[in-house]
Amino acid sequence: MPDAPDILRLENLQVHFPGRGGVLDHILGRPSAAVRAVDGVDLAVRRGEIVAIVGESGSGKSTLGRVITKLIQPTGGRLLFDGDDVTSMKGFSALRPYRHRVQMIFQDAYQALNPRHTVFDIVAEPLRSLRLVTDHTQLTQRVRQSHAAAGLNPPEEFFARFPHELSGGQRQRVVIAGALAVAPDLIVADEPVSMLDVSIRAQILQVLMDLRQQRNMALLFITHDLPVAWLIADRIAVMYLGRVVETGTADDITFRPRHPYTVALRNATPHVRGHSDREKLPALKGEIPSAARIPNGCRFHPRCPLAFARCREDAPPTIEVGPEHTTACWLMK
C-alpha cells in the first residue's frame, strides 16, 4: 500500500464561502468575513487506501467531502485525481467521467433515497444517468452485483421494495449499492454510520472493508468517532477549523497522537473497558469558533491546554514526526 500511486491529491485546497455578516456590518458597509470552511488542506489518498477524516462538527469535514466530489467548487489550491488536475473542471457533461470514478455517500440514508422509487431504480439511477450501461440485461446484472457487494442478499428480494419497507441499516446499504454500481475508484463517505445503531454500524463497516479487499477501491471516510476511524482506516487525518492538524497511521493517531487536539479527541471518546494509563490533558474548554472568525497564530491556541506565546502569533508549519506521521504544532519543533 505505501507504494501505491495517489488516486487523490489535495494541495493547499480552499473552500471559502462569502460571509453574510450582521445587519450592522451591512449598514456600515463593512465587508463581512468569509467563512473559511476548508482553509488550506494538503492530503493524499492512495489507490485502494482507506483514509479517515476525523474532527468535531464545524471543522470542515463535509465541505471537504463535497469539494472532492465536485458538488461545490474550490476557491483556491489544487485538486488532482489520478494525476490529472481537476480543480476547475465543472459542468455536468465535463464532470460525467469524474462522477463515474468518484462517488459520495451521505450520512442520512433516509433523505438520500427517493421514497417513490424502488430499490432497483435507486441503485440503477447513477448507471442510467451516467449512461454507463444501456442494455437491460447488463443493467440488471450490475444492479444485482452491487446489491450483493453491499450485503443486500438475496438481491432479487430487494428490487421491488420501497425505502420505507427497509430498516435503517438496509437503507444505508442501498445507498452504498448505488455508489458501487458505477464501480468507482474512490468513494467519499460522510458519516455513513453515525445515524445507525451500534450493531448495524458494524455490519456496514464490514461491507466497506470487504469492498476495498475485493475491488481495491479507495475510501475517504468522514467521522467524528475515533474508534470507528481506527477500525476502518489505514491512515487518519485529524481536521480542525478547516485545516489538517495531524496525519498518521490509524495506530499512530490512536495510540501515539502528537497534536493536543488529537489527544483531546481521544480523551473525549468514551471507553468501554475501564481506564487505561494514558496521559490525561485537561478536557477541551469551550466550543470550536466559527469558520468566519479563525483565530490568528495556531487556530487551535484559544482552546489548547498547552498553548504558549508563539502559538498566539504564528501558525505552526506541518512537520514530519515519524514515518507517515505529520503534525502542525509548535510543541513538536
Partner: peptide
C-alpha cells in the same frame, strides 16, 4: 454482542 460490536482500540 452489543459490547463486541463497539470498536475498541484498547
Amino acid at each position: 454482542l452489543l459490547i463486541e460490536s463497539i470498536p475498541n482500540p484498547e
